[in-house]
Design a protein around this nucleic acid. Structure first.
Lengths: 153, 153
DNA sequence: ACTGTTGTATCGTAATACGATGTATCGTGG
DNA sequence: CCACGATACATCGTATTACGATACAACAGT
């Protein structure tokens, strides 16, 4: 297609500015996750537990999810999620329930406590995201990274 | 729904849709980090090592940084960064150099190998970010989170 | 009922960020 | 130029957690 570019990959080399943009975005993620960690730990949760609660409450269309679905959303192996649920359940944040149709499935849902904590923490996260929007905005290179020489020059 | 609410924070309660947006964004982060991990591991790096390299090459104005500066950008404790650098140095990705002015400082910089690997990986990351832009775009609530019940889409 | 597939759970292991602590270098006041 | 506190880098032992390997339970099709 493109006769250009001497790069083996077919990807245009990044400029210093590209690296800076990429690094800034990654750093933004780190900062947001750090904020999240400190915030949730103040309420006695681990970051993973918060993610679990959020995945449940934020599941499209429902308020619960199966182990597998959670694993997919959190990008973890199923058995890692099982352990995560165990810990969260021990803390009284979530509970397991049976699925009426398929007895292999386990429905994971929030407890009243989990609901309350999550609501509180999520509000704080929403506010922080708003504050951090400048660093967390995607470094959008003009177009699909393909055209010659990159954005600036 | 009751107009009356007991959130003492002054923060408006989140709607189901808000939770879904928040969860989707968080999931997007997880996915991106997962992609990153798998990508860099294929080249023999750990995610932390990639972040280190990127932080160096992407440092504003320079292409080296001190331990402290890296710790700040990666949101880690200084001594965690020391260990990270040790591992990366053992792999031949970075090297330490003295600072001419202040002998307490250690300049961390990329080796030729580090440069090459980073360039390759960063191009892949840039492309992936572009692909993921829809899920990684900030859930921008109309305005400062305060006004009533979120946006209606 | 038999067999392959899917979903959940258990156990031992490896990786890594951290707190506590130690050492070198800097800057400044006496 | 020496003493002192502050700053920067380094080392060690510990705790948390995601993982691979493995096992068990329930489903679906023949």
């Amino acid at each position: 297609m493109r006769p250009m570019s001497s790069e083996a990959d077919g990807a245009a080399p990044l400029s210093k500015r590209d690296f800076e943009a990429l690094a800034q975005f990654r750093s933004g993620i780190r900062r947001y996750l750090r904020f999240s960690e400190e915030t949730v730990r103040r309420d006695g949760l681990t970051p993973q537990q918060y993610q679990l609660l959020l995945a449940l409450k934020g599941f499209p269309g429902r308020d619960w999810a199966t182990v597998r679905e959670i694993a997919e959303r959190l990008q973890l192996r199923h058995h890692s999620v099982v352990e995560l649920i165990n810990r969260a359940q021990a803390e009284g944040l979530v509970e397991r329930g049976p699925d009426p149709d398929d007895k292999r499935l386990v429905r994971v849902l929030l407890t009243a406590v989990g609901e309350r904590v999550l609501a509180r923490l999520s509000a704080l996260h929403r506010a922080e995201l708003h504050r951090m929007r400048s660093v967390l905005t995607l470094p959008l290179w003009s177009d699909p990274p393909d055209g010659a020489g990159g954005s600036v020059a």
